[in-house]
Nucleic acid binder design. Structure first.
Lengths: 156, 156
DNA sequence: GATAAATATGCATATTTATAGAAATAATAG
DNA sequence: CTATTATTTCTATAAATATGCATATTTATC
């Protein structure tokens, strides 16, 4: 159907922001948003999204999205920092991105990021091997990754 | 029974070393090792172990163990600092935590936090007396506090 | 356009997983 | 030891999830 892509998007948003313990539950939430599908479809959606069901400390369950860690493999057009292999990973939490680098590299790489002059990025803060990247509002994770010349290599 | 502990141990070993796609399957493997339990018990075991079922790229499923939280390094772990009063406070804003320390301590403590290898924490960035702690998505404030060997003095 | 191929969905149902008791086993107190 | 209490496990079953197949919808090809 036309709306599969957007449904998957909505599902990830829901799972990112709330604790959902069963497909029935998620089904209801989707229905609230006028997304009416059956449990069968949902099961398949979750499979596509690689969402896993995991037990929580409080005795309940939660459907969790796969980590958005992209282990780094540079695209054709290499920036200096990715080609040096100094960037280890980038992962998101909320609208923030955290980039891990080799020890000592963070400041240098952060400088590079800042000096791309990309409007998508509001600013960076670097420690020794960690950079906090603060995107502007409304900037997607994908576009940040693209900006960093990173491609996905999600693993199991 | 007396062998619950060891059974859980065996289960983790199995799950660590092979791809198991259903409880029935795991059940059979356990039976091979003369560990005869019912699926009901297994379901509870997996719940205790916080094992999650996640879709694989090849269209099948796999039971995966939770990320290992590394045990503490011999010297200077976090509780040393917290118990000696170098950590002044920790407070949350959104999903971020900000820890205040005695002047000059921040980097050292941040290093300790990083080196706990806790999967709950995406990264830290330290100044002189302030540490920004970025938890992974979906990680509760409580679990961050626990991780820091801190207890609550108030609400949420 | 028409038609073929590919993709997505629902229905019905099989399969899988979780849980409420009851029963068994172990631990503890007197 | 015996009674009491707590754990662990099982049986039976409920609840949740996955999937085969038929149908609808979209996309590609002519």
């Amino acid at each position: 159907m036309k709306n599969k892509r957007s449904r998957l998007q909505v599902i990830t948003e829901i799972l990112r922001s709330s604790v959902v313990g069963s497909q029935e539950e998620l089904l209801a939430i989707l229905a609230d948003r006028n997304l009416n599908v059956t449990q069968a479809t949902l099961s398949r959606d979750l499979k596509v999204l690689k969402v896993s069901k995991t037990p929580l400390a409080n005795g309940t369950y939660k459907y969790v999205l796969p980590p958005v860690t992209k282990t780094v493999s540079p695209t054709g057009n290499l920036s200096t920092f990715t080609s040096h292999g100094a960037v280890i990973s980038i992962e998101f939490s909320g609208h923030l991105a955290v980039m891990k680098t080799k020890p000592g590299y963070a400041s240098a790489i952060a400088w590079d990021i800042d000096n791309k002059g990309a409007s998508e990025i509001l600013g960076t803060i670097a420690g020794d091997d960690t950079i906090l990247i603060i995107p502007r509002e409304g900037v997607s994770r994908e576009s940040i990754l693209q900006l960093m010349d990173l491609t996905f290599s999600n693993k199991d």
